[in-house]
Write a protein that binds this DNA or RNA. Structure first.
Ligand SMILES: [Zn+2]
Ligand SMILES: [Zn+2]
Ligand SMILES: [Zn+2]
Ligand SMILES: [Zn+2]
Lengths: 162, 162
DNA sequence: ACTGTTTATGTTATTACATAACAGATACCG
DNA sequence: CGGTATCTGTTATGTAATAACATAAACAGT
C-alpha cells in the first residue's frame, strides 16, 4: 500500500477471521437457497475479497489464490462473475476492481442490486451506499430508455484522508 | 457493428462533415482561449471520436489514426487525457470507451463537468444527460466524504432498440 | 536570432485486464 | 447406473493502458 499523503491508513480496518467465516457461511446458505453451488474456487475468491474489505483487483485475487503460486485467470474471473450475479460482490468500474457487498454485513440476505460507492483515492477504502436515482430515471423515461443496470461511483477523499 | 437483435440500427446517426468541422474549430478556440494547444494528434483524435458520435474504444482510434497503419498507443492515450481534461470528451468507465461531450453540440463552451450517460447495449448509442445528485451528495456529506468526480452510467436499451 | 525552459511527441517495451476454446471432472436427475 | 448439465483446468490469445527515455517543437526573456 503505497501513498505519499502524510497520514497513515489505519482507519482502513479489516474484518477479523470470525467475521469472515460468518460471511462465508452465510454466502453458502444464500447460494444453496437458490439452487446454486458454492464451490471451492468461488468460496476462495469471496474469502480473498472479504479479507481485503476494500476493492480488490482481479489479479490480486489470482496471485493470492493458492498458498504457492497463482491461479489461472479464468478460474477467478468465472468466480467473480458468479459472485456478482449472486449479489455477493460488486464490480467497481472506475477501478477495475471488486468489493464485497455491504448489504450482507448485517446478516440479511440481499438480492442483486444496484449500489453507489464512495471511493477514497488516498487510502483505497470503499463505502457502499443505497441511493435512489429519480433524476436519471426521469431522464431515461423521457428518452424512452429502458435502464437495466446503473453504475454510480463517487471518487474523492474519505473523512480520514481529507 | 454486429448485432442479433432483429432490427437495424439506422437510428444511430452520424454527424455530417460540416458539423464535425464546426465542432473541431470550436474545440480549437476553446483550447486557445485557455492557453492550451490544439495539436495535430489531439485534433485527429477528437475528429475520430466526433465521427463516430457514440462511445469509441481507444484502440479503434489508434487503428484509424493514420490512413495507412495505426498510431502508437501513447500518442492516442495522451490525446484522450488532454481532451478529457479540456471537457471535450468523456470517458465511459463501464465500456472502456470515450465519447464526445454533447455539451458543445449547440456551440456553447462548457467547462469540464460531470455527466450521466444512457448507454444502449444493443446499438451502442450514448446520450449525455445532465443530472444533479442530491442523494449521493447527502450520503457523502454524512460520511465526511469529499467528492471529486462522479461516474454515473445507465446501461440498457434505447427507445429504438427496446 | 540565441538560449534555456517548458511542453508535446515519437518510440520501444512492458504491464495490466479479460476472454475464447476445448478437454476433463463433478454434480444432478431419472 | 447412464445421460445431461454445470463447473473446473488449461492453453492460448485478445484487449486496454502505461513506463521510460529520446527527440522535437513552442515559448519567453535577452
Ligand atoms: Zn451491495
Ligand atoms: Zn481514505
Ligand atoms: Zn459533457
Ligand atoms: Zn439502441
Amino acid at each position: 500500500m503505497s501513498h505519499a499523503c502524510g497520514h497513515d491508513h489505519d482507519h482502513v480496518h479489516t474484518l477479523d477471521s470470525g467475521r469472515i467465516d460468518a460471511r462465508l457461511s452465510e454466502a453458502r446458505r444464500l447460494c444453496e437457497a437458490q439452487g446454486e453451488r458454492m464451490t471451492a474456487p468461488r468460496l476462495r475468491t469471496l474469502e480473498l475479497i472479504l479479507s481485503e474489505n476494500a476493492p480488490v483487483k482481479a489479479y490480486d485475487v489470482i496471485d493470492r489464490f493458492h498458498p504457492d503460486g497463482a491461479a489461472k485467470p479464468p478460474t477467478v474471473y468465472r468466480a467473480l462473475a458468479f459472485l456478482e450475479q449472486m449479489g455477493l460482490i460488486h464490480r467497481i468500474e472506475s477501478l477495475n476492481a471488486f468489493v464485497a457487498c455491504q448489504g450482507h454485513a448485517d446478516g440479511k440476505a440481499v438480492q442483486p442490486h444496484a449500489a453507489a460507492f464512495l471511493l477514497c483515492d488516498c487510502c483505497g477504502s470503499s463505502e457502499e451506499v443505497a441511493v435512489s436515482l429519480p433524476e436519471i430515471d426521469q431522464q431515461a423515461s423521457a428518452s424512452g430508455f429502458e435502464t437495466r443496470r446503473v453504475t454510480l461511483e463517487a471518487r474523492g477523499l474519505c473523512k480520514a484522508c481529507r
